[in-house]
């Protein structure tokens, strides 16, 4: 056994390179063509072959004319099944949409669209990304499409390309396994992992040129939110807190007063990835407390704002900070 394992591991890189050459990355909607569709009998199919041989030997021995016919009928049925298994994948079209960005460590769900142009349904189409434990399986009705979210574990911030897919099916009878490899051009953005227990938001922010943003004292009351570590004591709304059994913090709405600058350079002394993690955690905190925030990276600056788009811009910048996965 160790011998074969060693042999396998020796050949694996060559095999992978061969597959990569034979199945290059394709963009847009990709149709499964017959040149790249493979088919072999499964163990079950080989069992069916054994039944055929048993019948044939029996027919020979007992000079059973109809036994011959029956044995050959099994062969003919196997052929009909082979064609169906092959046609089940032939001509299927796949495309990969843009996945929702996730934080490193979470699963990226690549949205795959499977388009079936023919009238017959396609059964049990199994899709597995390379080196992933989870696979997805679906039926596609005739002249219809199916959406499939294929989970791929993200390990590192940056860009995560969809690994090469193995698309396989043993339907309709399980006697044959038909498969192909497909490299789609799906790419996911992976934000840095938020630091699990970050220090409180910095009370004030500073731009790298030293211009201070002063928090003014006269703010409009904007609402309440839950206490978080690092909140100032004088911001606690004692009366409301007493009523709700939660410590609530008065929120103020003031364009300047609450503005927060999150500065990469201020975190000097920490490794780059830790800094990115912390900034991510802070951005999420600021967004959830509705406190406008700006982000300053060595090469980029995002002026303070709030909202979905701003959040996405800031986190993408962190994700694509040099040194991540591409």
């Amino acid at each position: 056994m160790p011998m074969t394992a060693a042999l396998l591991s020796f050949w694996r890189p060559y095999w992978q390179r061969f597959l990569a050459r034979r199945h290059p990355v394709e963009s847009g909607k990709v149709r499964i063509r017959h040149q790249r569709l493979y088919i072999l009998p499964t163990l079950y199919g080989l069992g069916f072959g054994m039944i055929f041989i048993t019948m044939l030997v029996g027919a020979l021995n007992y000079q059973l004319s109809l036994g011959f016919f029956f044995a050959f009928l099994l062969l003919g049925v196997a052929h009909a099944i082979l064609l169906r298994t092959y046609a089940n994948l032939l001509g299927l079209q796949l495309s990969c949409g843009t996945p929702i960005p996730v934080f490193a460590g979470e699963n990226v769900y690549f949205p795959l669209t499977l388009l079936n142009e023919k009238r017959q349904p396609r059964f049990g189409v199994n899709i597995q990304a390379r080196q992933q434990a989870e696979s997805a399986s679906t039926h596609i009705p005739g002249q219809d499409h199916q959406l499939l979210a294929l989970p791929v574990k993200s390990r590192q911030r940056g860009l995560l390309a969809l690994p090469r897919l193995t698309i396989s099916s043993t339907m309709p009878l399980g006697f044959f396994r038909c498969w192909t490899y497909l490299a789609l051009d799906g790419v996911a953005l992976v934000y840095p992992q938020p630091e699990p227990d970050p220090p409180p938001l910095p009370d004030h922010g500073a731009l790298s040129d030293g211009k201070k943003m002063q928090a003014s004292g006269n703010e409009d009351f904007a609402g309440l939110r839950e206490f978080q570590r690092g909140d100032a004591l004088h911001d606690i709304a004692w009366k409301q807190s007493a009523r709700t059994e939660q410590i609530l913090i008065r929120q103020h709405q003031s364009p300047i007063g609450a503005t927060l600058w999150l500065n990469f350079d201020e975190l000097a002394g920490l490794p780059v990835e830790v800094r990115l993690s912390r900034l991510t955690a802070w951005i999420l905190q600021a967004e959830s407390t509705q406190r406008p925030y700006g982000l300053a990276l060595p090469a980029q600056q995002f002026p303070p704002a709030l909202g979905h788009d701003h959040l996405h811009r800031c986190l993408s910048a962190l994700a694509q900070y040099p040194g991540g996965a591409t």
């Binding site: 020979l60 000079q63 011959f68 016919f69 029956f70 050959f72 009928l73 099994l74 062969l75 003919g76 049925v77 196997a78 052929h79 009909a80 099944i81 169906r84």
Partner: peptide
């Protein structure tokens, strides 16, 4: 599937050498 198997079965039935 069975109907599709029949032509193959007939061909082989006729041509398969008998002992």
């Amino acid at each position: 599937m069975i109907l599709e198997g029949i032509p193959i079965a007939i061909l082989l039935f006729v041509l398969f050498p008998r002992l």
